[in-house]
Amino acid sequence: MSPPSSPSHFLPAGTVYGTLLNFRAEVEALAPQMSAPPYKAPPKAPVLYVKTANTWSPHGAAIPVPANVPEVEVGASIGMVVGADGDIEGFVPMNDLSVPHASFFRPPVKFKCLDGFLGIGPALRDAQEVDDPAAFRVEVRINGEVRQTLDFSTLVRPARQLLAEVGEFMTLAHGDVLMLGCGAGRPLARVGDRIEISAPGFETLTNTLVAEEKGAAA
């Protein structure tokens, strides 16, 4: 079950999908690894993973971090919400947290699907208000300090192209969310840190990392 939210806090109505390797700098940084066995070439189609409902944390929620995880990667992104007609209904900032890991060659479920590991922005921005998603500029602040800036004009697949290419091999339903990507050089955060994901035209997403209570994890 997804966590409760107040009437003013957006939560997805469908499945949330993350996208890997959709920022050019991320592809360039991993190019040597992608050219090595077993694949020996970069992927030709979008690379997706699922952020299951147990990961969803509304804006303002405290996100628990297990005791055996000293730091987490902050994956700032913008999620595009699929409308009833299959087009884009709106956009929302997201904080795709993960346990640092080196390889993308295996499904990253154990690193990305921990309880609470997806901060979700407080409000959906209607797609009709957005002239061009490539103009999105996202800042990540940890304890008030800017730690990363993302320029969405540097995407490998811009929003509509990504949506179209994913649609070639799977059907997205109304309410599903497809993240545009998180970029390279993701900052690290630890218990006690306050993380803010902000972008012009969006309400700021804020979450705080807390120590997981003993006995809470399976």
Rank of each mutant, 00 (worst) to 15 (best):
M94V: 08
R125T: 11
W56M: 08
V92L: 06
A84L: 13
E71Y: 12
L97C: 01
P122R: 04
A13Y: 12
A216M: 08
F136G: 06
V72F: 00
L162N: 04
D176H: 05
V72L: 01
F10T: 02
P93E: 02
A36H: 09
L188F: 06
N68L: 12
T206V: 13
D193T: 02
A216K: 09
E196M: 02
A159D: 01
T149L: 12
G119S: 08
V166R: 10
G83D: 09
W56N: 09
G167E: 07
V50P: 07
D115N: 15
V16A: 06
V69Q: 02
G121A: 04
M170T: 14
G144R: 00
V72E: 02
G121L: 02
T19H: 08
F105K: 11
K214S: 15
N22V: 02
F91C: 05
G192V: 06
T55H: 06
V177P: 09
F91I: 03
D115L: 13
A164E: 10
F111N: 14
V177G: 11
P4Q: 04
R157V: 09
V191Q: 12
V191G: 09
E145I: 05
A41E: 14
K40G: 15
A216C: 11
L114R: 10
T208A: 08
A217W: 10
Y17V: 10
V146A: 05
D96T: 02
R141Y: 00
F105W: 10
Y39P: 15
V130I: 09
P108V: 04
I78W: 00
E145P: 08
P12T: 10
N22W: 03
Q161S: 15
A123I: 05
Y49H: 08
S6Q: 14
G79F: 00
A45N: 13
L150F: 01
P200N: 04
R141D: 01
M80Q: 12
G175P: 12
A45P: 12
L150I: 03
D193L: 04
G185W: 00
P58H: 07
E196H: 07
A102D: 14
V138F: 07
G79H: 01
C182K: 10
D85T: 09
S8E: 14
A31Y: 09
A62C: 14
Q128T: 15
A216N: 08
R147C: 11
N68V: 10
S77K: 01
V109S: 14
N54F: 05
D96S: 11
L150A: 08
I88D: 10
T154W: 00
A189H: 03
A184T: 03
P7H: 03
G86I: 04
T19R: 05
A61N: 13
H9R: 13
I78T: 07
G90S: 06
A61K: 07
C113P: 13
A53R: 10
